[in-house]
Design a binder for these strands. Sequence first.
DNA 1: CCTGAGACTTGGAAGAATTTTG
DNA 2: CAAAATTCTTCCAAGTCTCAGG
Length: 630
Amino acid sequence: PRKEKRGKIKEKKSKEEKKEKRKKNKKKSDEEETPQKTQKRKSKEGEENNNNKKAKKEDKKEETENKWKWWEEEKKEDGVKWTQLEHRGPYFAPLYEPLPDDVQFYYDGKPLKLSLATEEIATFYAKMLDHEYTTKEIFQNNFFNDWRKEMTSKEQKIIKDLDKCDFREIHKYFVDKSEARKALSKEEKQKLKEESDKIQEEYGYCILDGHREKIGNFKTEPPGLFRGRGDHPKMGMLKKRIMPEDVVINCSKDSKIPEPPEGHKWKEVRFDNTVTWLASWTENIQNTLKYIMLNPSSKLKGEKDWQKYEVARRLKDVVHKIRAQYRADWKSKEMKKRQRAVALYFIDKLALRAGNEKEEGETADTVGCCSLRVEHIKLHPNLDGQEHVVEFDFLGKDSIRYYNKVSVEKMVFKNLQLFMKNKNPADDLFDRLNTSILNRHLQSLMDGLSAKVFRTYNASITLQEQLKALTNSEDNVAGKLLSYNRANRAVAILCNHQRSTPKTFEKSMQNLQIKIDAKKQQVEEAQQELKKAEDEFEDTKDAKAEANVEKKKKLLKRLEEQLAKLNVQATDKEENKQIALGTSKLNYLDPRISIAWCKKFGVPIEKIYNKTQREKFAWAIDMADEDFEF
DNA sequence: CCTGAGACTTGGAAGAATTTTG
DNA sequence: CAAAATTCTTCCAAGTCTCAGG
């Protein structure tokens, strides 16, 4: 309680202090708004109903006024995460609604009425019918196995072959249903939205140390079929419905303890203030825990995030020493040390993940640095004019392929040859190393250092360097944003953050090209018209003609700018085809670097961070000025 | 040291909402 | 204004890493 008080007082005080600052900021950002935008807003004003607008405005006000600036408070003692935690417990997935009687399941061509539980599981499969998953044998087998377990003995006797099961009518029912939902009237949609807002309002927040904080995932996961990524041995297995009896609640002793749904009990209620989760349950596929935790905008998550970047910044001070040491260790007499040094080199240079061991047969076969196998690399003494080239080809996290050809130092190359000698393709490359050995070593080099810190550090430092190299202060905002995206992209490539090419990519690229061509045409026409106007002015020398010249000049300039913008867009799009920027932006790049860049070059923060991102990075937005250096 | 449990971060895809376009 | 395109949000799987206990 004492702590809480102190926090509150501090908050109040700081609020007053910041009021001035905020005012200034607001003015500034208002001014910075483009005229276009203001105009749009104005034109909207007329149509939109006043009530709505007012409500929105108040909403916005509240947002800025009530924010908890936890980063201005003193830290809690080690290991204690909160002193007060109150919430409503998870929101449970809706119960199964039976199919209407005219929607039937067919076995061997004949309609078959299923028991409720069996029918529910059948709908899981039916819903996925046009997904590639259902064509895979493992998926089908796992599903059928688990499905049969839940059948009545009578059903078990009849349903013996998945190929004889016809789910198409059920499938169609759900397709139609989702179409119908899309086609609802505005009012009906509004009503649905209000209902979900109400649930969000009730279950989506908790009270943490006197502050209302948003929860990240307040709903239990609905039952369904497990979809792993890549070649997952468990794909298609039945994910069971979570019941209150499965759920452990965590909250503070003196808080209002959440009520389980009527007729039910919690598995357990505990009061553990050394952890950050509000509720947990064990998931039946991998037998691991799942948690309900806070939203990234919360203090608990934000503080940790901030701390992560501070650790990475400390690495910056010692990284030269560490690099010198692992280079020296390449020549160590101890095999163990050599392997450690080469692995660390990969982690540092290529931003590979640590690579924990995984239980065989339980998950897809993926690897990281320490778990690389001989079959994952090829050594080329010479390749495409480069020496000592290592060709990596393996599946990493989420079964995303890592493919890279890297020219490495001679000593690394020699070591790799040594590590691979007399081994089978399926043998571990670093047979004397694992993540715990590596991390123990790293911890001894710097407090808080582990393998993943290198990824954070290299990502952030790369962004900072790239921004420095690419940004041209003469550019307009669009040009600067292209530079930002390119810097971001360099990081995403480093971290191997890939996405599948969007389905609409080719088409939208074509459309853009058409637009560019049309704009070029316009520019040419405008040039001709300007010429004509100039000639006319030459002849007549009258004021009207002069004004006309000015007008045409302006038009041309505007068109040229628009063309440039389109070209920038096209470049950006093409370069981004298979790169996913989101993960690095959200998890690896110290937000203060981006914010400092925005401030320095007069780019509004909203251009690089959307609302959610600004909420997550509120701490950074508040504390970073344009001089921030990572 | 090794092992497994536990807690927490990181990841792309899919679905929903919003904006742009024709 | 509807359809298409784009952006944002949700979903939940899959990593990392620490710690307790043998």
